Computed example of a mutant assay.
Amino acid sequence: MKNSRRIKKNTLINNVKKGFRTFYGGMETPFKQSSLRVWIQARKFNKTRQDRKWLKELLTTNKVVRRFYKRPELEIQDIENVTPVDFKSRDNLNLKGLIYEPNKGSNKWVIASHWFAGHKTWSLHHAKVFVEMGYNVMVYDFRGHGQSQNDSTTMGGKEHKDLMGAVDWLKENKKIDQLAFMGTSMGAFVSNYCSILYKEELKALNFKFVVSDVTYGSVFSLFLHVRNVYLGFLPKKRTKKFINKVIAKQNKKEVSINLHEVSIFHLLREGGNKDLFPTLFCHSSDDKVTSPTDTYELIIKRNNQDDDYLMFNFSMHTQGIRYHFKTFNYKLAEFINRFEKDDVLFDKVIKEWELLKFEKKDQLSLMLK
Results as ranks from 00 to 15, higher is better:
M1E: 11
S4R: 09
K9C: 05
I13Q: 10
N14Y: 06
T22S: 15
M27K: 15
K32G: 00
Q33A: 08
Q33R: 14
S34H: 08
S35N: 13
R43I: 09
K44P: 00
K44F: 02
K47Y: 10
R49E: 03
D51H: 06
L58R: 03
L58H: 06
L59M: 13
T60E: 13
V64R: 14
V65G: 13
V65D: 15
R66H: 14
F68E: 09
F68P: 01
R71H: 12
D78E: 15
D78L: 10
I79P: 02
E80F: 02
T83E: 15
K88S: 10
D91A: 12
N92W: 03
N94A: 08
L95N: 04
L98F: 05
H114N: 07
K120R: 12
S123W: 01
H126S: 11
E132H: 08
Y135C: 07
Y135F: 15
V137S: 12
M138E: 10
Y140R: 03
F142W: 07
H145R: 09
G146S: 00
G146V: 00
S152E: 11
T153F: 13
G157T: 04
K158A: 03
K158L: 14
M164L: 07
M164C: 02
D168A: 11
D168R: 12
E172K: 15
N173V: 08
K174W: 07
D177H: 10
D177L: 05
D177N: 15
D177S: 13
Q178L: 11
L179S: 07
F181K: 01
M182S: 03
G183H: 04
T184G: 12
G187M: 06
S195K: 03
L197Y: 13
Y198R: 15
E200N: 14
E201G: 10
E201H: 14
N206F: 04
F207M: 06
V210F: 11
V210L: 14
S218T: 00
V229N: 14
G232F: 06
L234Q: 05
P235Q: 05
K240N: 15
K240T: 06
K245N: 11
V246P: 05
E254T: 01
E261M: 05
E261G: 08
E261C: 07
S263L: 10
I264S: 12
F265E: 01
H266M: 00
L268S: 00
G271A: 03
L276P: 09
H283N: 12
D286Y: 01
T295D: 11
L298S: 12
I299E: 08
I300P: 13
K301P: 06
N303D: 15
D306G: 03
D308Y: 13
M311R: 09
M311Y: 09
G320I: 02
R322T: 05
F325S: 01
K326Y: 03
T327H: 04
N329Q: 06
N329T: 02
L332V: 00
E334R: 02
I336W: 14
N337Y: 04
N337C: 00
D342C: 04
D343C: 07
V344Y: 10
L345Q: 07
E352Q: 13
W353Q: 05
E359C: 04
K360I: 02
K361A: 05
K369N: 14
